[in-house]
Amino acid sequence: MGRSGRKTESFSLLAYLAFACVMLAVFVLCVSVGSVSVPFSETVSLVAGALKGNAAPSTSSASIILASRLPRVICVALTGAALSVCGAAMQGLLKNPLADGSTLGVSSGASLGAVIAIAFGITFPALPFAGTMVMAMIFAFASIVIILSLAYKLDYSLSTNSIILIGVIYSMFVSSLLSLILTFASDKLHNITFWTMGSLAGSSYKNALVLLAALILCGGVLLRLHRELNAFAVGEENARHIGVNVRRVRLTVLIAVSALIGVCVSIGGTIGFVGLVTPHIVRMITGPNHAKLMPACLFGGASFLMLCDLAARMIANPLQLPIGVVTSLIGAVLFIVIFYRSRRVS
């Protein structure tokens, strides 16, 4: 029973604990395994020691784990959780199983914003440290608005085909702008691979804190809108008829998603398909009810991206692949399967 005799539709505490245990196991695996393998026991004691505030021992293992691998894996986990929750929210809001930051071109839009901010040195007086992030958020939101407006013009029902078509065209357009800016301002920017395939190598604890804050704030808003997302997933008109303030909910979800994707992209570049793949896998286990789907996506997305990052580090060891290569390989195959199935059903 929840507050005031009202019952929650979400998981029991035991289920949450089980999810957390699985995620923690994946986390320890990903921190332990790498080009230099560190035993599990040593990894756990190093991390536990750091959490207690003990001084880090001056061994190479401690340096690898605490200064390099730990912040990276934390950032990967938070990015995976954030992108997955965004994907689930978009798929519910648009009643479209193929909606995601990467398929809609929102991530590309955020990249463009970040690249413009860096290339032209754009900062905001009130937020001098976060110019790139704010520009990524603004461009992510503008991208969603542009794509949905164009899709609405083309097809009022916002069918899968219209959204994907507009998303692909928009992504191509934004990618070409991105390449153009990168060509002229390559000295100031990460390389093109970072902005198109993503990378969380070299992430810091500061990055992790920013991601955590964004996830708590925006992810919290999205998780709390689970009933409204259920209504949208059944149909926008039906949502209106049962009393959902569709305009306000739509705007809230789009702002939260844009902000979260903006933060993720400004830190880790464009990591494609995480927001598409995870909700689909999770939905097979939890069903489509967002009261369960959204929290499960947090754990599922974090675990999925941590494993993808591990694969990216280990497949061609000592060479590190961009993390987006792994997610896109899996995502593209799944995308085709879903698209094929949806066409067959319709």
């Binding site: 009643k95 479209n96 199983p97 009933r227 259920n230 209504a231 997933a233 059944v234 039906n238 049962i242 939905r283 069903g287 489509p288 009810n289």
Partner: peptide
């Protein structure tokens, strides 16, 4: 488009 149960849709 999604596999909601009958009870879930009615519950909305």
């Amino acid at each position: 488009n999604y596999a909601f149960s009958v009870r879930e849709v009615v519950g909305l």
